[in-house]
């Protein structure tokens, strides 16, 4: 009896702690949402934690204002184009490599070393390549273009594609592909018609995760883009001119930037742990 009562008390304390932890981690996002719905005049005067309707009269004006500016729309379009094409390009180049590392045996340089070589790109400091990339793009006349940002983002996410999807191909049973090869299918057909459709769920999920990475990239975007090719994070940084004054716009911009990758992450939940540890931990 006593033990059971303790267990129940423990459960209740635990629930309170759990809710508290969740609230702490959720608070910044909640605060952005709350600020974005306030009239400028309410920004610093709301009481408590700024619950809409309770502490202030919410308005959608900030959202309408921000979303109707051509700059925001332009940045949203740019970010979508750049992240999508970078993702597709990385998949196009990386998928065959991932498959090859899973199914063929390389002898000159071993599969393991090739995989680790791809993996190691991820850890290089991007600032080491940003200056040469800037100089090359300047001499090619590609500054402030989508193409430059697509190429560099594809480069950053390529290692993810190779390493994570290699693991997905390894997880597939080889018998089907073997049978197809015996029946006279070419390696390319086997890859395209059998292995790829079977691993489609992980290809799509990996695609979502790398799209989010490309969406969030900032260092190269601010270096390469100046006007036409400005992405959402760079557009966000434009709020720097108005900082300290227009918090309501900053909150809207922050949410516009964050919502797509966060939604994507929630869709790709199952693969997050594997993705973020580059396949080293299976979540």
């Amino acid at each position: 009896m006593v033990v059971r009562r303790y267990a129940r008390l423990y459960d209740q304390v635990f629930s309170v702690v759990a809710i508290f932890v969740a609230l702490v981690f959720f608070f910044p996002i909640y605060w952005a949402a709350s600020t974005s719905l306030r009239n400028p005049i309410d920004t610093f005067t709301v009481s408590g934690v700024g619950v809409p309707f309770l502490d202030f009269d919410p308005t959608l004006n900030n959202w309408i204002d921000q979303l109707s500016t051509p700059e925001t729309q332009n940045a949203l379009i740019n970010s979508t184009i750049i992240s999508t094409l970078a993702t597709l390009l990385a998949l196009l180049v990386g998928l065959p490599a991932a498959y090859a590392l899973a199914r063929f045996r390389y002898t000159t340089i071993k599969n393991k070393d090739l995989t680790v070589w791809f993996l190691s790109q991820r850890v290089l400091p991007p600032v080491a390549t940003v200056m040469p990339f800037f100089l090359v793009m300047r001499s090619l006349g590609l500054l402030d273009t989508h193409l430059a940002l697509i190429l560099i983002n594809a480069t950053f996410i390529l290692p993810f594609v190779v390493v994570i999807l290699r693991q997905s191909f390894l997880d597939l049973p080889y018998e089907l592909e073997e049978a197809a090869l015996v029946d006279g299918a070419s390696f390319f057909q086997t890859f395209l018609r059998i292995a790829l459709p079977l691993s489609l769920p992980s290809v799509v999920t990996t695609g979502l995760i790398i799209f989010a990475f490309a969406w969030n990239e900032f260092l190269f975007a601010i270096t390469i883009s100046s006007q036409k090719a400005i992405t959402i994070p760079v557009h966000m940084a434009g709020a720097v001119d108005t900082r300290g004054v227009q918090f309501w716009f900053m909150a809207v911009r922050a949410l516009i930037a964050m919502i797509p990758p966060v939604v994507i992450a929630l869709l790709a939940q199952r693969y997050i742990v594997r993705g973020l540890t580059l396949g080293a931990v299976k979540g």
């Binding site: 930037a257 964050m258 990758p261």
Partner: peptide, 29 residues
């Protein structure tokens, strides 16, 4: 729910997170 809440920060655009916390750490209000 807990899992979802914990996934959000990881994928939130870092630059936006920086500005968001600028409003949270703002010392006058």
């Amino acid at each position: 729910v807990m899992r979802s809440v914990m996934i959000m920060p990881i994928f939130a655009t870092p630059i936006a997170v920086g500005y968001l916390f600028f409003t949270i750490f703002f010392e006058n209000g």
